[in-house]
Nucleic acid binder design. Structure first.
Lengths: 204, 204
DNA sequence: CAGTAAACTTGAACATCGTTCAATAAACAA
DNA sequence: TTGTTTATTGAACGATGTTCAAGTTTACTG
């Protein structure tokens, strides 16, 4: 009775795992429907019974990656850490470390561009916003006078800047910070931004 | 006698222009050999007489983009600008503006990843390094005590951080700084980083 | 000019993709 | 069993980057 349903569900989760491994091993561009089908044991066309298209599959894997990232960031700050600046530095470094350890999966989060006009599903949007609390909360503690809008913008600035350093740094391009110096430079950047906010903005 | 050579040269530069326009209009993924061939008036296979492969063509267009970016950054600081911090802010904002006005071409610079094992040609490397003087020189003026290595790393940090804000900001993603606030946030970041260096590093 | 060799150009063909869909098989109901 | 619905298949389609044997043009020589 549930046989077919069960099989589908099994196949679906197999598909996600296979896709995740394939991206981790060979990058986003190494993800091929035929390889996936062979790996989970079905016809290549059958992939489209489990998932609307590749976009959905990639978003699905992305969701898993974001959740693991969320856990990594949470684990990075010791419970009871009292100093918000220290927390922000820890979170930034944890972001860097996660990206380094999950390079291809992390890259896939940003390389993938949705086909125009197709909208990003709600659950994917939710995944992305969840991460922000790791930055927003310490900032709110540091600058209690600021409005949520200001804090939101500052959090995005901080994230974007750190993200840029990590993204270019891990590409090992010429324009990037060399890898051995990367973590120290990130810590320096975060501290400088916080100091700059405290000095000019007049928070706290 | 030179007829064939002339034609080839003409076709080659036509190809670069067509490729540039095509990327600007439809993005890097909208660049198709058959469309190019039709546009410059030759057989699709003939593209490979003018260029080794798509990678080379993309690097070629990238080179042009980098040169225009170089000019834009040069134009952004008034001659005789005496304050290095102000210069750095101007350069960062000019980078942001250039990216916004040349969105697809600028994205192509970073989206394109060379096929593994194939090496980036010298002239492309040179193009990339040229840009660094816009950041390096003001920094060297600001912190004359620092070693070239330290300055190089700092310049890369600064560039990467600003690049990150621009890259995410122009994608209009949720994690990005909203567009209206972007320029102001970039200026704030640059000032904060410089202040941070001055305070902790003991330069000047 | 005629003839030949070299250089260039062509477009059909190849291998790979994501994606679709008519045909087949399986599962279930009566 | 028989009929109906549902799930699965794999061949086929339309792009795409790239190659290459064949054809064409150009440049040189006698």
């Amino acid at each position: 009775m549930f046989k077919a349903l069960k099989r589908r569900e099994k196949l679906r989760s197999d598909l996600f795992l296979a896709a995740e491994r394939m991206i981790a091993d060979r990058g986003l561009s190494g993800l091929k429907t035929r390889d996936l089908a062979r790996e989970i044991g079905c016809a290549n066309g059958a992939v489209y019974n489990l998932v609307a298209d590749m976009d959905e599959l990639i978003l699905r894997v992305g969701s898993r990656t974001l959740h693991r990232l969320d856990q990594a960031l949470s684990a990075a700050v010791p419970r009871g850490e009292a100093m918000p600046q220290q927390t922000l530095v820890r979170v930034a470094l944890a972001y860097c470390d996660f990206a380094a350890e999950n390079l291809q999966l992390w890259r896939a989060l940003f390389e993938h561009r949705m086909e125009a006009d197709k909208i990003v599903p709600d659950w994917s949007v939710e995944d992305q916003m969840q991460l922000f609390r790791h930055i927003y909360q310490p900032l709110a503690t540091l600058f209690p006078k600021r409005s949520p809008e200001e804090l939101g913008i500052t959090a995005r600035s901080l994230f974007s800047a750190v993200h840029g350093m990590v993204a270019l740094g891990l590409e090992q391009k010429l324009v990037a910070v060399p890898l051995p110096a990367l973590r120290e430079e990130i810590a320096r950047l975060v501290r400088a931004m916080i100091d700059g906010l405290a000095a000019h903005g007049g928070g706290a």
